[in-house]
């Protein structure tokens, strides 16, 4: 599903040049749940952003479902993104001005789903996430756990083939964190590919493969025990 060849991402500021990804090669198959680990600044988030097509690589190739998209235009990437990808962020990234319902509905507006279908789909997800009673609240009125469940609902509303999660439990207590991991695992079991960046070994082991990064490169790849 995903294959990168010598992927490089360099950040340039006035004085400093930072290499976040350094000729990174990686392959992820459909149906995998991959956890990415590594110290701060090793390039985990950058990798996720490039894979999620919300950032473009400096050089190298990135094949998504056998299509080279690293150098596609923003419009082209946007098209692939809205139909195939879902995002979950550490800081939730809900839009403050929209209600819970509207936040979850938003991606379907961009994929032009009919109003009735949208309503049904949002309600189905909110029901499943157990936050239906909060549908008309604004994000600031929710707890962190509730916000992240809304964010997950939003990420999967368009049935994405790939979910990219950037420390989805980083801002949550263990109970809420476990709940989010349970949802992700369930999605993976239903066939969704997941790539998750995390600092926590505990969370990482929910996946079936752990990739460790250092200085923009993959240093080790291990299958998680139960898959050995």
């Amino acid at each position: 599903m995903i294959r990168t060849v010598n992927l490089v991402k360099v950040y340039q500021t006035d004085e400093v040049e930072t290499t976040a990804l350094n000729e990174l090669n990686l392959e992820i198959k459909e149906g995998e749940f991959v956890s990415v680990m590594g110290p701060s600044g090793c390039g985990k988030s950058t990798l996720l952003n490039v894979l999620g097509m919300i950032d473009s690589p400096t050089s190298g190739e990135y094949y998504f479902m056998n299509q080279e998209i690293g150098h596609l235009s923003e419009r082209g990437r946007s098209n692939i993104r809205k139909h195939n990808l879902g995002f979950v962020f550490q800081s939730f990234n809900l839009i403050d001005e929209l209600t819970v319902f509207e936040n979850v509905e938003l991606p379907m507006l961009y994929t032009k789903v009919a109003a009735n279908d949208r309503k049904a789909r949002v309600e189905e997800l909110l029901e499943g996430m157990n936050i239906m009673h909060r549908r008309n609240h604004f994000p600031q009125q929710l707890s962190g756990g509730q916000q992240q469940r809304v964010a997950v609902a939003r990420a999967i509303v368009n049935h994405p083939k790939l979910i990219l999660a950037d420390e989805p439990t980083g801002n949550l207590d263990s109970t809420n964190g476990n709940e989010v991991m349970r949802i992700l695992t369930k999605l993976n079991e239903e066939g969704t590919t997941i790539v998750m960046v995390t600092h926590s070994q505990y969370c990482a082991e929910f996946g079936n493969r752990i990739i460790r990064m250092l200085d923009g490169k993959v240093v080790t790849e291990n299958l998680v025990k139960q898959y050995l």
């Binding site: 419009r75 946007s78 993104r81 139909h83 961009y110």
Partner: peptide, 16 residues
């Protein structure tokens, strides 16, 4: 800015 970013991640077009 942040809202724009999120909307784009979710598939909003430039025109939108």
């Amino acid at each position: 800015t942040r809202e724009i970013g999120i909307r784009k991640v979710l598939g909003a077009t430039t025109f939108g």
